[in-house]
Design a protein around this nucleic acid. Structure first.
Lengths: 120, 120
DNA sequence: TACGGTACATACAATTTAGTTCGTAGTTAT
DNA sequence: ATAACTACGAACTAAATTGTATGTACCGTA
């Protein structure tokens, strides 16, 4: 958790307030986050499925990211209250609207990566 | 011939997409980074000017971000070798191509922020 | 009886990032 | 004479993120 009155936290708040761009970037900040969103946009909605679809992610990180995204209003958690447990995550409207933007970002990233990866 | 909707092809697509995307997100990662890019896109090219345009940024962070962006191939540093020193930073082609994507991200962020900032 | 599957929680350690402070050198303005 | 401006560099501290290792509860299967 972020301390309330550190310069670090202050700056984050200032940036989030200052404009839509910094707000968006702060939201996307956090490893695995876009991968989770991407999976949800593909119809992969259960914890275990997402986990299996993101090689390398730990259970803690997945749990944390899902919570983050829920807090931020990008996804909704639906608990079916069954045994064994079944929980589904879905993108909200805001989350869905982000997907095409991520696609553009993805295209740009793929292109730039090709151009700059000459050294490898 | 590879089937269009085989699991293999789907997975490959997902991986390619998520790779370009995660690559892009990693590039954007780092506080103040998009602010610097934004300033450069508006024709604010000198260290001091950028610093004055980003309230709260420290000189160390600005220096660091400029270096990062240069390494990543998004900006170029031009030293005029004068006294007092004059250095200009400019977006590369890759950097310029990112700007419209950032605009979309900005619009999305502004919209989402309005919707979710009821508490303020 | 022991294990695997479900979806997490919690304590802790390691790593990375962000921010503070002080310093450089030459020139110009007060 | 002193301060400010230019664009940084380096050492250091504070804070945040990420990862690891464990435990939880319930059920079905072998």
């Amino acid at each position: 958790m972020r301390k309330e009155n550190s310069t670090n936290a202050e700056n984050q708040k200032i940036l989030e307030m200052s404009c839509g761009l910094t707000y968006a970037v702060e939201l996307l900040n956090g490893r695995w986050k876009v991968n989770v969103i991407w999976n949800l946009s593909k119809g992969i909605n259960r914890y275990g499925q997402i986990k299996r679809n993101i090689p390398g992610i730990s259970e803690k990180m997945l749990t944390q990211r899902l919570k983050d995204l829920e807090k931020e209003g990008l996804i909704i958690r639906e608990d079916f209250k069954t045994v064994p447990p079944r929980v589904e995550y879905h993108l909200t409207e805001a989350g869905k609207e982000l997907v095409p933007v991520l696609k553009k970002l993805c295209n740009w990233g793929a292109k730039v990566r090709k151009e700059t990866s000459v050294s490898f």
